[in-house]
Design a protein around this nucleic acid. Structure first.
Lengths: 215, 215
DNA sequence: TGTACATCAGTGAACGCGCGTTCACTGATGTAC
DNA sequence: TGTACATCAGTGAACGCGCGTTCACTGATGTAC
């Protein structure tokens, strides 16, 4: 029933014109995703709106899902970069609460970046709603969790990765939920989401740290 | 481009046989949603799997989106009932921290109920991913926020609904994100999600309450 | 620098299929007298 | 209690359309000598 589908890009664009075409496909797909949703988007429509013929699209992507997958990859990479930047700017601060204190940076940047690229949210939601693509988001969140764990576990002697990983994973999930809400819910302004989510995550980790220091 | 679509149920089933048919349509649609996703589900397929002919489906639903909408309504009603139950069981406790202390009840029940009905998660995700149906989930979360605000605002003299509503709204959102993660992420077990999310929400509201009491 | 050839980029035309939806109909159940 | 009629439930057959995808092709760019 649910046979495997090739999700990899078929052929990478080599010439300048081709790179433009490739990017245009992804941009148009993003726009259509927000406008009409996953269940209405089609390769025919993407090609038409991108000003190319359908076989050109199939030159780069083996099928429709590969387009969505590429969209997801591009987005996840950007999100990942923000996390890397946040980790880098706090690298020299050895105190265990360093990252917690700077958490608002991560949240602000994530919300602003997502807002700057309209369609980012739609991509996340589309990936989640399509069974064969769910792993993309899951994988990205796990990778971010790993990166944070790699940083803090060695700096917390006696604490185990096994106890920290699920807690970080949960914070990552709730963080993204907050980002999504900042964009989806007009009745709560973004500044409030930023402030209160930061408060909440910080309160949680300060609590954990207090327990840890008592050991 | 995005013209209005009638999402209301066309005709309510009156006889016993009809009620069964109607429910079977929704059950089959839920299953197909998890198995193949929103972008693959079709009225033809739903009818075939439900053992009815397509015109029978169109007797009750004006179009495909109305089926998804009905699915969402049914789910949101159930989620809402859990919140009502939680509010009811804490009605007599006048202390402001009453609901906070009992928060784990709400979370446990929500996770267990969602787990008991496979497909519940898929419905949420599908609704969110389809532009014309996004309001269903948003409306449900706002309604829950209203119900909680109705309870606690009068019991917190001096606090305004304007300051509480966004905070409650955020907790509702993060609560559901936790429920979703409990079901989507096999690398973190449900017990941990329950415990840590409860800790986090409680830490946040205890912090708020401490500030409030200082006023 | 010119040219021959290889590779890359994009097109025209077509395919079979399942989609959402509708119409005029038959058969089953409920209700008034 | 029987029967006539109204309403409810479900069907057969069909529609036009856009879908995903493929093939054999032409035109543009890069590269080796």
């Amino acid at each position: 029933m649910d046979e495997a589908v090739d999700l990899a890009v078929k052929r990478a664009p080599r010439q300048k014109r081709a790179v433009e075409t490739y990017e245009r496909i992804l941009d148009v797909a993003t726009r259509l995703l927000s406008e009409i949703g996953v269940e209405r988007i089609s390769t025919n429509l993407i090609a038409a709106e991108a000003g190319i013929k359908v076989p050109t699209l199939y030159r780069y992507f083996p099928n429709k899902y590969a387009v969505l997958m590429a969209l997801g990859d591009r987005l996840m990479t950007r999100q990942n970069e923000i996390v890397v930047e946040w980790l880098a700017r706090n690298e020299d601060d050895e105190r265990p609460e360093a990252l917690i204190e700077d958490f608002h940076f991560l949240l602000d940047r994530s919300i602003d970046a997502t807002r700057a690229e309209p369609g980012a949210l739609t991509i996340m939601l589309a990936l989640r709603a399509v069974p064969r693509l769910q792993e993309v988001r899951l994988g990205s969140h796990r990778q971010i969790t790993d990166a944070i764990a790699d940083r803090i576990v060695p700096r917390l002697p006696g604490a185990t990765r096994a106890e920290l990983w699920p807690r970080i994973r949960l914070s990552v999930e709730l963080g993204y939920a907050a980002v999504e809400m900042a964009l989806e819910e007009p009745l709560v302004d973004a500044a409030t989401v930023k402030r209160e989510t930061a408060n909440q995550i910080q309160a949680y980790w300060r609590g954990w740290l207090a327990e840890y220091l008592k050991r």
